[in-house]
Amino acid sequence: MAQKIAVIDYGMGNLRSVSKAVEHVAGDAEVRVTDDPSYIAAADRVVFPGQGAARDCMAAIGEHHLNQAVLRAARTKPFLGICMGLQVLMQRSEENDGTALLGLFAGEVRRFDGLAMGDNGLPLKIPHMGWSQVQQQLSHPLWADIPDRSRFYFVHSYRVVPEDVSLIAATTDYGVRFTAAIARDNLFATQFHPEKSADVGLQLLSNFVNWSI
């Protein structure tokens, strides 16, 4: 039977590009953009994207009654967080004068600040927007066939700082070295957007779709 992949929709951002990219690599899988907790519970895999401000994202997750569905999926089945879908897994964000997050992992979300100068003699711009190299910090099935230091597409002004550094699956440099991806058991989450990262991004999504825990 074709596997079911849920792309969690809590009304934050454009999910079309995520679902299209997953469909592109998922063969005959059923890919559904959904806010239905029962579909998420029944899905074989879950993608948890998100864009926008931390407070709005948390409010939207609450309004859609998705807190428990997200946490349960994140503990039990292949789970891919993207961008805000990584950040909200932490405990707390500096954004919006301090926002409590889902708290699956100990750690904070901090704004880029006190940045170094760029090579054009100007301060580095925020948001960090564009293609940066991702240094793989551990071997993982989701890195299969992706050369170390491949460039992925980022758009963000905040970065995660997990307390447990063994979570860190990749780092990227932007004024400061920050966590570009985390991995633990059945969960993988990226600050960058694989769905917008051309071939290497599609490879990562393909690895996720084929990941057996």
Binding site: H128, G130, W131, S132, Y174
Partner: peptide, 8 residues
């Protein structure tokens, strides 16, 4: 090693 300049 940093952010690539983009061509659009």
């Amino acid at each position: 090693m940093g952010l690539a300049k983009r061509i659009i």
